[in-house]
């Protein structure tokens, strides 16, 4: 028994460390000396040479890519909150005709296999003249089933009288949703923001297909191109990867409990 307990404790420490090594290593190489990547046995301590990262941020197009990703992510989050709050409210409170049909449509979107839709989606964007635009990076992801359901679930918990008093006082439904219902559904807002942030920041395949303009490409796509061109330049590559990784790592560090719970209870169709 005692030995089994010790073994489990050991595994509980060692396994998480193993999972973290690749990320840690990205950091070590990015801030290490030139050629650290090829050193055998590997170097494990970071040297804190910030030079390469500063170089990447100042002498390349990376600021532009970071700007693109930040813009796309921010816009997606704002739009997702907007559309989800409205649709979630309609599903929670308004008995409109076709209510259940729309409910099915929202569930259905979660079930559509993304990889099988890329060809027709490309054609649609082509005909809408949306290829190579920021809009193409944002608008298709401006509505999100799990966020809609999340908002619906939280709006249902708000007492009916909250909306009725607003009706009596002449407060419009939109104003009520944004000033009263949404602030009262903070957990839904937080979860939606986090999940949308992660999904939008990590976008790769979509921009790969829908844009070939370096002006719009987000950081992941830029990384992929960069990787194929400068494969040998490990330090710069690791620095660029670190730039792409850091926001996720920082956000995760502060909200990991929330994210893990959100994923376990909400976003079950998370794509690889």
């Amino acid at each position: 028994m005692r030995n089994a307990f010790r073994l489990r404790t050991l595994l509980l420490i060692v396994l998480p460390v193993l999972f973290f090594i690749p990320i840690y290593w990205t950091f070590v190489i990015a801030v290490g000396y030139h050629g650290a990547a090829y050193h055998l046995p590997p170097v494990w301590t970071p040297l804190f040479h910030w030079g390469p990262i500063i170089y990447v941020l100042t002498h390349t197009h990376w600021p532009r890519y970071v700007f693109n990703t930040v813009g796309i992510t921010a816009a997606t989050i704002v739009l997702v909150l907007f559309t989800s709050a409205l649709a979630g409210y309609a599903l929670a409170e308004i008995p409109f005709k076709g209510h259940s049909l729309y409910f099915l449509l929202v569930i259905g979107v979660m079930m559509l296999p993304q990889q099988a839709l890329l060809v027709p989606q490309y054609v649609v964007l082509f005909h809408l003249h949306m290829l190579n635009t920021y809009a193409a990076m944002v608008i298709p992801f401006a509505a999100n089933s799990s966020s809609i359901f999340l908002f619906r679930q939280f709006f249902k918990k708000i007492p009916v009288s909250f909306h009725e008093i607003a009706r009596i006082e002449g407060v419009s439904t939109l104003r009520y949703i944004f000033r009263v219902a949404m602030p009262l559904a903070k957990p839904a807002v937080a979860t939606s923001v986090l999940l949308t942030f992660i999904a939008a920041w990590n976008q790769f395949q979509w921009p790969l297909i829908m844009t070939n303009s370096p002006q719009i490409q987000p950081i992941e796509l830029a990384l992929s191109h960069y990787m194929q061109t400068y494969e040998a330049n490990w330090r710069e590559l690791a620095s660029a990867a670190l730039i792409a990784l850091s926001p996720i790592l920082i956000v995760f560090a502060f909200t990991q409990k929330h994210i893990v719970q959100a994923v376990a209870g909400g976003d079950l169709n998370a794509k690889d």
Binding site: P159, S161, E164, I165, I168
Partner: peptide, 10 residues
């Protein structure tokens, strides 16, 4: 002007 049982104060 209406007053609800649960007051409906935000």
């Amino acid at each position: 002007g209406m007053v609800f049982q649960n007051y409906a104060i935000y």
